[in-house]
Design a protein around this nucleic acid. Structure first.
Lengths: 203, 203
DNA sequence: CTCGCGAGTGAAACATGTTTCACTTTCTGC
DNA sequence: GCAGAAAGTGAAACATGTTTCACTCGCGAG
């Protein structure tokens, strides 16, 4: 529909994946998308918002993918971990873009708030869908069986852990492999309790 | 000891609390600290690193406070929640500074990596101390009873949830009150399991 | 068809993070 | 006390996010 907007987002993703946040120069984005700088700023009020919007578009793609190809697993835990594995693999496939987006998301600039909230809501919905083992929350699900308090809490929890683990990776605290390990360890604790998470004594 | 460095950090905190990340102008920091711009950049290689260093200094203060005044509570869960309440209150006491620091921490700029890791390590130590109910991990503790896998996993988990909740607040996803609610809900799930966290049916 | 308007344009201006460099001051080992 | 090194200085230059503004163009209403 909005051809111009999509082109801008394409360019932003391309530049971000090429050289990270700093490589996304607004002048370059505008030039490569074939629009004037003022037009770019009319669509996106800041660089942060632009990158958040790019991420949100990717989330839409993911939603469609999960709908036709839901996370598999015997238990809620397995499905959630499978879903987070897919999500995380997507981030690591474009690591520089991922870092740029994390930076934009955590920047806290007001112009990006709405986009961040939208992204957060999408991932939350997908997480609850994974908990339930469905492709997505249809209107019927959402009305007939709205997310329970438990589902909401677990989805929020797992998303927060996943997000923080990614930020840790981006900041240099942990490696790519450790991100998934942390998510899996977290899922074990959340779904089975601290006691089941290790052979050592409880705390 | 390093008078100059401390003065710079004081100014950074002051400006950040006054008007957030954008209000910390490097020229102003240098001028108000009474040093040349080049000197500022010799101590701190970027604005992000400067803000992270300011946060790390606050963490040192907190360490001393927790040592003489450990988090109180009958159980590990209570003590960890009490500790996180103190930590979070500190953030909310200077909300604009807090937002600025979160932005800097999550920026992923290489120059700040070491500082972020140091901060992360400090909080982790304090979290384990709270789990155990001691003021801090003395050398004896760390050698005679190094953190178990469970302790490490729980501390990491709780720190991640707390951090992500704060970023959510900074980005406009949740309110100050919701941050503490999320941390408490997370603690309930982590320490007592999903089943104990609600009156509703399990997932 | 013409008018008026809203979107888009291009260029310039501005603000601020970061770098550079020649010069000065301060410290340190002898 | 001195020579050289290290640290600090001041100013300018640069890069880039963001704003502004006068101008143009295409299009729908009348």
């Amino acid at each position: 529909m909005d051809d111009r907007r999509d082109k801008i987002l394409d360019v932003a993703v391309e530049l971000a994946e090429e050289g990270g946040f700093d490589n996304v120069r607004q002048r370059d984005v505008a030039a490569m998308a074939g629009v004037a700088l003022g037009t770019l700023y009319k669509s996106f009020r800041s660089k942060e918002q632009l990158l958040c919007a790019a991420m949100e578009r990717e989330a839409e793609l993911l939603e469609r993918r999960m709908e036709t190809n839901p996370a598999k697993g015997e238990s809620p835990e397995e499905r959630v971990v499978a879903f987070l594995r897919i999500l995380t693999r997507g981030f690591f496939r474009k690591p520089k873009f991922a870092r740029a987006v994390l930076r934009a998301m955590a920047s806290g600039v007001p112009a990006a708030a709405a986009t961040v909230i939208a992204y957060h809501g999408r991932i939350n919905g997908l997480m609850i869908a994974a908990l339930r083992g469905v492709g997505r929350l249809s209107f019927n699900d959402a009305t007939a069986a709205p997310p329970t308090a438990n589902e909401g809490a677990v989805a929020m929890l797992m998303q927060q852990i996943w997000f923080a683990a990614l930020v840790g990776w981006s900041a240099g605290v942990s490696s790519q492999a450790q991100v998934m390990e942390q998510v899996e360890a977290a899922a074990t604790i959340v779904f089975r309790g601290v006691r089941g998470s290790s052979t050592g004594p409880f705390l």
